[in-house]
Design a protein around this nucleic acid. Structure first.
Lengths: 231, 231
DNA sequence: ACCATGCTGTCAAATTCTGTCAGCAGCGAT
DNA sequence: ATCGCTGCTGACAGAATTTGACAGCATGGT
């Protein structure tokens, strides 16, 4: 069986992820142990399968951030869990993440045979409609800052209505029943603080990285709060 | 590119799903337009890729219920949505569905390169811990009854504490912030009724199908309640 | 203008896939 | 026990596909 080819394509994706800058086709060909001509064919294959690879003459290839899943089998419970979870995200999260949930569902539905697609459309697992929120915070920007480990300038109104400005190192976002909370290290208080996103007056990314790494902060915060690691 | 082969494997899965009973390899070979020898090789390929296909001598092949996804690409937002959604399900749904969510996450994590797997483990999107519930209802059984369109014998305690017994046709399950609600047609009241699962004293499947189809009931209920169809 | 690079066509060699034939093993019915 | 049906594996030759080498064109940056 030609398992070699599909595995080579997976390897190719990994190699492209390693380089964060554009890589030349010649380099990729060498790393995957294949001729340049074949590499071009492999790239074309991946693109045909939906991989977001951009190639520019004179520069090389870059893989847009994302995840290529190989073929895999999900049980009925697993797919129901994914569908229900995505629906919850679609309703409860900010517009961009919600759009991601909808897109993911559509991608999955698109590859299912008609009979099973209908099963999803008629899925019997429903999620409550979200409440009206007065939460205009830009969660997408906050998520981006978290991913990039960028410091944020925050104007925040605490429980007592007092307004403060701080610089914080955001590293997590919590979704509770009715509120969303940004978790970060607060330079002002020199400690971990939780910020309800509906009380954030404004958040501006400084574009500068904070000095510690996100997983370390997360771990330390978990220990400080006595929160077990999620499954 | 040998897109022919992988497509044939997808077709093979669909054909196997059509037959709910065991199918002989010869039949499958004829349906996919391939020799019997090659069919055996195709089956082996699918099994190697994780498909749950069982073959028994003298009977044929059966595909265990589930969904085989072809290789596909998810954007960062999409995968974050899937992860967050699965975490929510893992915490908020009944044990079986929660296990499905955990399993699905593990399957996805298992095929990601180490660096991205860590990304999921350190995911910055958190879900609130579930509240303590006094909800001992067997949601897994209810979901099963919904899928099979089976009638349920229900002992239910309504808001006023009055205890009733009814036969209902369950067709949906709603997840709200703090309560879960089974939706069904109530034979006693001759109308759609919502049953909070924590007020269900006992639910016994009759094993008999109800006379109407689930999608029709769902649609009618949506119209009656003024609920738009979910994305 | 020049170089690095992406991209496509062509064709023969290398590789893989497929069909045919053969044989063994497990299961149910006669 | 025997038979038929079926799953499953090995071997091998021909068919089909993939690969590599070569040639050429297009594009962007220097």
């Amino acid at each position: 069986m030609t398992v070699a080819r599909s595995e080579r394509l997976l390897v190719l994706l990994q190699v492209m992820r390693r380089y964060r800058q554009p890589v030349s086709g010649a380099t990729l060909a060498a790393e995957t142990g294949v001729s340049l001509r074949t590499l071009y064919r492999d790239i074309a294959s991946l693109q045909a399968q939906g991989a977001l690879i951009e190639g520019e003459a004179g520069l090389g290839y870059v893989l847009k951030p994302g995840f290529m899943l190989p073929p895999m089998m999900f049980s009925q419970e697993e797919i129901e869990a994914l569908v229900l979870g995505s629906r919850w995200v679609a309703k409860m999260a900010d517009p961009i993440l919600a759009a991601g949930a909808v897109d993911a569902l559509q991608k999955i539905a698109a590859v299912l045979p008609a009979e099973l697609k209908e099963e999803i459309d008629n899925s019997t697992l429903l999620v409550a409609a979200p409440r009206n929120r007065e939460d205009r915070s830009d969660l997408a920007m906050i998520r981006k800052a978290i991913r990039a480990e960028h410091m944020l300038h925050l104007a925040y109104e605490d429980e007592r209505g007092a307004l403060t400005e701080r610089r914080v190192w955001p590293f997590a976002l919590g979704f509770f029943d009715s509120v969303r909370v940004m978790v970060g290290w607060c330079e002002l208080r020199q400690g971990f603080r939780h910020f309800r996103t509906d009380r954030i007056i404004s958040a501006v990314s400084t574009g500068k990285r904070y000095p510690r790494r996100r997983p370390a902060l997360l771990k330390e915060w978990r220990r400080a709060e006595g929160i077990p690691t999620p499954g």
